[in-house]
Amino acid sequence: MRQPDIEIYLKEAVTYKDVEAWLAKVLGPCTEWKKKGETWKCTAGDVPVTWMPKAVGKWNSLYLDSDKTPWEDDITCAHAAFKALNVEVRCAPGSWVEEQGEADADRWIRISEDGQEEITWKTGS
């Protein structure tokens, strides 16, 4: 089932400008980035994009607020991001809702040169 939005986390070496070049190829040209507080926002093609540097420690959040992306879910997007940007990517294994409890909140998928693996990533304070 297609997720209503996509959120992945990219290791610190990547900037929103690196992501912009990739998104422009896949989704369409990006509008000018606008800074709002700690986040950067643009639209790539028809998809609203939010970039939050250092959202979790050294990890940057990329949020695509649309179900109109070429990716079915976070994991397929994370694989595409790793292939395009050659940087470790993390994402949730599926849609997570608070009712699932805190234990599931720490389950993440890691995509790197080692392939795909499930990890425990404590993102809370």
Rank of each mutant, 00 (worst) to 15 (best):
M1T: 15
R2F: 02
Q3S: 10
Q3I: 00
D5I: 05
I8V: 15
I8S: 06
Y9K: 06
L10C: 12
L10M: 15
K11Q: 12
K11H: 15
E12W: 11
V14K: 07
K17Y: 12
V19Q: 14
W22R: 00
L23R: 09
A24S: 13
K25D: 06
K25M: 03
V26H: 02
L27F: 03
G28Y: 13
P29I: 07
T31D: 09
T31E: 15
E32M: 11
W33S: 10
K35P: 03
G37L: 05
E38Q: 14
E38M: 04
E38I: 10
E38W: 02
W40N: 07
K41Q: 15
C42F: 03
C42Y: 03
T43G: 02
G45K: 12
P48I: 13
T50M: 15
M52P: 00
M52R: 15
P53V: 02
K54N: 12
V56I: 15
G57E: 13
K58C: 08
K58G: 13
W59C: 10
S61T: 15
L62R: 11
D65H: 03
W71A: 05
E72D: 08
E72N: 03
E72A: 08
D73W: 02
D73L: 04
T76C: 12
C77E: 05
A81V: 09
A81R: 05
A81E: 10
F82I: 05
F82N: 08
F82E: 09
K83P: 01
A84C: 02
L85A: 04
N86L: 05
N86H: 08
E88F: 05
C91R: 07
G94F: 01
G94E: 11
G94D: 12
S95K: 07
W96N: 02
G101F: 06
G101H: 09
G101L: 09
E102H: 05
E102P: 04
D104Y: 11
D104F: 10
D104H: 10
R107S: 07
I111F: 03
S112M: 00
E117R: 08
E118I: 09
W121T: 01
